[in-house]
């Protein structure tokens, strides 16, 4: 599964999803690991995990501070995370890829993507025992949104 960051107005088929944004849906956790939940040949699109019970009793270092570090533990590994909001004007969309034969695949090279319907404005970004910083590829990649907007504005 992967996350695609989109501008809502560019979306074609899933406009109805916009209503989901901001409702009390489950948080999206971006983990520093790959969990091989599917058996080979198993075409189950999504597998569920009891995140609320096994993962969510995490703690926050400073109360009421949006930029505070969070701590959690997965399979005994210490995780350090931050709450990440999508850039203004964008939402995140969870996608599941399918290969030519229609099998569900995880790789980012998927030919066709189907939208799972999960739309998110924010997610928890977790590192394994490393404080998330602006040096992290994902956190810095979001710069491109603003840079590209500036370039597009110049083109006009």
């Amino acid at each position: 599964m992967r996350l695609v960051i989109k501008r809502p107005e560019h979306r074609k088929t899933e406009d109805s999803d916009a209503s989901i944004v901001g409702t009390g849906q489950q948080a999206v956790h971006l983990l520093p690991c790959k969990i091989h939940t599917r058996e080979p040949g198993d075409d189950c699109q999504t597998s569920t995990a009891p995140v609320d019970r096994y993962f969510c009793p995490y703690t926050k270092s400073a109360a009421e501070d949006e930029s505070a570090l969070w701590h959690s533990s997965l399979r005994g590994k210490p995780l350090t995370g931050v709450k990440l909001s999508m850039p203004d004007g964008y939402v995140g969309v969870l996608c599941v890829g399918k290969d030519d034969a229609g099998n569900t695949i995880d790789g980012s090279t998927a030919a066709v993507e189907s939208i799972t319907g999960e739309v998110t404005e924010r997610l928890m970004y977790w590192n394994w025992d490393r404080i998330p910083t602006r040096e992290d590829p994902l956190l810095s990649a979001l710069d491109w949104m603003r840079v590209s907007e500036a370039i597009m504005a110049n083109n006009d």
Binding site: I35, H36, S47
Partner: peptide, 29 residues
């Protein structure tokens, strides 16, 4: 997915072995 409840010490080799054979494989980046 998550392995054991938090009463278990994941770092003990016994626990690691049981996970390897009975739970989803997890690759750390």
């Amino acid at each position: 997915v998550f392995g054991f409840p938090s009463i278990v010490r994941f770092s003990w080799s016994t626990a690691e072995l049981v996970l390897k054979n009975n739970a989803a494989q997890v690759d750390w980046s």
